[in-house]
């Protein structure tokens, strides 16, 4: 049983939901990313998603794209990111999942990526451009290593296919709330709750909802139907302030924002 399986088992037993913030590695530098991860953890986040910056992210909206560009402009390397993670993962309770493009994993070597990320303390990976059909080889490697490979279901996924994806996913299932790219939204689709509710009855795998979530009202509405919620762009937008504001103030702002959402989630 992986760290993530353990976490959801505990949360489900306690009737609690997971809060999973996302942060881009190396934005604006790795030292700050480590500080943000610690802050997110200290505020009670249950899992953290660490975005490995990629040059051509097609699933990402302007906020996360810009964060990837800021990190890559400073030539941040995968080895440096994993080394930062290795330093911080022992100091945080929350399991850390890497969000990483397949181009990066493939170039690094599938088995080597899993080995190196695991050594650095990562509990799994989400590969947004690796649909289930192409994921067999990586899934087999992850399974042997007990490293979660989180797969995604979207509003355009036919139900029968969603069940197959759920079968091959591990750790949890990432339910993408909208047909579109990452980014904050005021309104979320009307049939989202019904669709997630249906899927949750079909699979024992925990389901976390992401894309578009940023407000306490979203959290309150979606929490009952999911096992966890993922918040990305709203955090990254705050991290971006580190370019122009004192870092302590930015960390505090991120922390307070996370506390507000956590209160809405399990409060």
């Amino acid at each position: 049983m992986s760290k993530i399986d353990q976490l959801f088992k505990t949360l489900r037993a306690a009737g609690q939901k997971a809060f999973m913030p996302f942060v881009t590695a190396g934005d604006p530098d790795l030292e700050f990313t480590a500080a943000v991860l610690k802050e997110l953890d200290a505020r009670g986040s249950h899992l953290c998603e660490l975005g490995i910056p990629y040059s051509d992210p097609i699933a990402d909206g302007p906020v996360i794209q810009a964060s990837y560009s800021r990190a890559l402009d400073k030539k941040v390397k995968l080895a440096q990111i994993l080394s930062m993670l290795g330093g911080v993962s022992g100091q945080v309770k929350a399991p850390i999942v890497t969000m990483v493009s397949y181009a990066i994993i493939l170039r690094h070597g599938l088995a080597k990526y899993v080995e190196d990320a695991q050594k650095a303390g990562a509990a799994g990976a989400i590969v947004p451009d690796l649909p289930a059909d192409e994921a067999r080889e990586l899934a087999a490697i992850c399974k042997t290593a007990d490293f979660s490979l989180v797969q995604l279901v979207t509003p355009t996924t036919p139900r029968e296919r969603a069940l197959k994806i759920a079968e091959s996913s591990s750790g949890f299932l990432y339910y993408v709330s909208v047909a579109g790219i990452t980014g904050e939204r005021t309104e979320l689709p009307r049939d989202l709750i019904e669709n997630v509710g249906w899927l949750r009855e079909q699979t024992p795998l925990p389901i976390c909802i992401g894309f578009g979530i940023s407000q306490p009202e979203h959290v309150k509405r979606l929490a009952p139907v999911a096992d966890g919620l993922i918040v990305g762009s709203a955090i990254v937008r705050r991290v971006a302030e580190a370019g122009s504001k004192p870092r302590e103030a930015v960390l505090k702002d991120i922390g307070e924002y996370v506390s507000t959402l956590l209160a809405a989630l399990n409060g």
Partner: peptide
């Protein structure tokens, strides 16, 4: 059927596009 020309090709896109 999987879009492979020998080892090359395939589909490395977000799930959102798979149905289309």
């Amino acid at each position: 059927a999987a879009g492979r020309f020998g080892a090359f090709g395939g589909r490395y896109v977000p799930e959102t596009l798979m149905r289309a």
